[in-house]
């Protein structure tokens, strides 16, 4: 290869590596700080690599007074699992109907659904809050954290695109075999859109895992709060003990990071797809 091409290639990789290092650095900083001693975490100039690894920091952060990490984790897992499952069910049904069934009002209804994307959450936060707390009486409950998220217009939209790409011949063949919509959906269409289902499930799970403002507003007891909200009192409790704070942040980020690294293809492709379609 001519040296100029080599140099250009090296420059490209240099840019990419520098960018990647900057992007990943906060994660590195979080994890390494979580293993430093109190003094080392506070030292200035900063110490880039712990001289002694204090693995007990994690235990200390986990058992920190007034925190209920295990409980919060269980809450988050439960809430995320139920709302993800629920969203999948409602989204698959609705998306299938919008894509492959003919009924009066279909387009109008779909248009209304799409319009709701443009209603900003700041505007609906208070009415939703009043509705949930005052009229449904769900203040400080699990259902307040789950039910509003059992349907996702975004997921319906995404799945509809996939159902539309299922060949019509398959449906015709199924009809000749006497299969109705339910059977066709279950045994033909769903297996075909499996990757999209995984994407939708992952994105919903992630959104639920990371949701913060809404659970902060509708809950008051530590026993039913998710971990994002639990992180707030922990951070004010731990104060300037940054090694413990970073351990806490790691608790919250690590599970999503692991899931992401395992299933990154679905995450990235899901986002990419919405990007093109939009």
């Amino acid at each position: 290869m001519p040296p100029r091409v080599l140099a250009a290639g090296a420059l490209k990789h240099l840019i990419l590596v520098a960018g990647a290092v900057l992007t990943a650095f906060p994660f590195y900083w979080m994890v390494t700080t979580s293993f430093k001693s109190f003094a080392e975490a506070q030292s200035y100039p900063p110490v880039l690599w712990p001289t002694v690894w204090h693995f007990e920091n994690w235990q200390q952060a986990w058992e920190f007074p007034t925190t209920l990490w295990a409980r919060s984790f269980a809450n988050t897992l439960g809430i995320a699992a139920v709302s993800t499952l629920g969203t999948l069910v409602t989204a698959v049904l609705a998306a299938y109907a919008f894509a492959r069934m003919r009924f009066r009002g279909r387009n109008v209804l779909f248009a209304i659904f799409l319009l709701t994307i443009f209603i900003p959450s700041e505007a609906t936060l208070i009415p939703n809050f009043v509705l949930i707390t005052k009229y449904l009486g769900w203040y400080n409950t699990y259902q307040a954290q789950i039910v509003p998220f059992l349907a996702s217009v975004f997921s319906i939209f995404l799945l509809r695109q996939f159902f539309m790409s299922v060949p019509q011949e398959l449906q015709d063949a199924a009809r000749i075999d006497g299969a109705g919509h339910v059977r066709f959906l279950w045994s033909v269409a769903l297996p075909l859109v499996r990757p999209a289902l995984i994407t939708v499930a992952l994105l919903n799970f992630l959104a639920s895992w990371n949701s913060f403002l809404w659970p902060l507003l509708v809950t008051s007891s530590p026993e039913i709060r998710p971990i994002q909200v639990a992180l707030v009192p922990f951070s004010s409790e731990a104060g300037t003990q940054y090694h413990l704070l970073m351990a806490g942040a790691t608790f919250v980020i690590l599970p999503t990071l692991v899931v992401y690294l395992i299933a990154q293809r679905y995450f990235i492709e899901g986002v990419a797809r919405t990007g093109i379609r939009g």
């Binding site: 809050f129 009486g137 203040y139 400080n140 509708v218 008051s220 530590p222």
Partner: peptide
């Protein structure tokens, strides 16, 4: 006893709880 954060955070919680009647 239930710890609800600082004064502002308690206040936010109270506004909610008042609407909810809880």
């Amino acid at each position: 006893p239930e710890f609800q954060g600082n004064y502002t955070q308690i206040y936010q919680k109270m506004l909610g709880a008042i609407q909810a009647g809880t």
